[in-house]
Computed example of a mutant assay.
Amino acid sequence: MASETSQPHVYDIDNPAVAQVFAEFSPFERVGLLGLRQLIFDVAARDADIGQIEETLKWGQPAYLPSKTKSGTTLRLGLPKTGGFAILVHCQTTVISDFRALFGDDFAYDGNRAVVFSKGDVVQTDKLVLLVSAALRYHLK
């Protein structure tokens, strides 16, 4: 008897403007950013304090915020000037500096605003869960 394997829930992009932005990314960028998007929704789904995530555009980038609970700061997904792709937070929060204190050289950073990924980087989702959770729970400190 074969056992069933559970597939992760895939979150549809309901906002046409957001879908259009994802469609315009190169295949490499799109795959990486969709993986980060999935992580954001997965973290939120496991934490009732975060609640439902609103997906919109801010500064032309896909942006994610707990809309009802107001528990966190916005996460954005975008392309840094240096190439690759990134997960970004508001630079006046301590999210990136706190994350850097935990994981230092395990990641590349753009100041206090982003964790940046280049071709060939392994996206360490087991560690990034902490960054996503910290951002989406930022105002619950």
Rank of each mutant, 00 (worst) to 15 (best):
H9V: 09
V10Y: 10
Y11T: 11
Y11P: 01
D12K: 03
D12Y: 11
D12Q: 10
I13E: 10
D14Q: 13
N15V: 12
N15F: 06
A17M: 14
A17C: 03
A17H: 12
A17E: 15
V18S: 10
V18K: 02
A19P: 01
A19M: 10
A19N: 14
A19T: 11
Q20M: 10
Q20H: 12
V21E: 01
V21H: 05
F22G: 01
F22P: 04
F22C: 08
F22R: 02
F22K: 04
E24S: 13
E24N: 15
E24L: 08
F25Q: 09
F25P: 00
S26T: 15
S26P: 04
S26Q: 12
S26C: 11
P27K: 06
P27L: 06
P27Y: 09
P27S: 11
F28G: 03
F28C: 00
E29D: 03
E29L: 04
E29N: 03
R30G: 02
R30V: 00
V31W: 06
V31S: 13
G32W: 00
G32V: 07
G32Y: 04
L33V: 04
L34M: 14
L34D: 12
G35V: 01
L36G: 09
L36I: 04
L36T: 07
L36Y: 08
R37N: 09
R37A: 08
R37C: 04
Q38T: 14
L39M: 13
L39K: 14
L39Y: 08
L39V: 14
I40T: 06
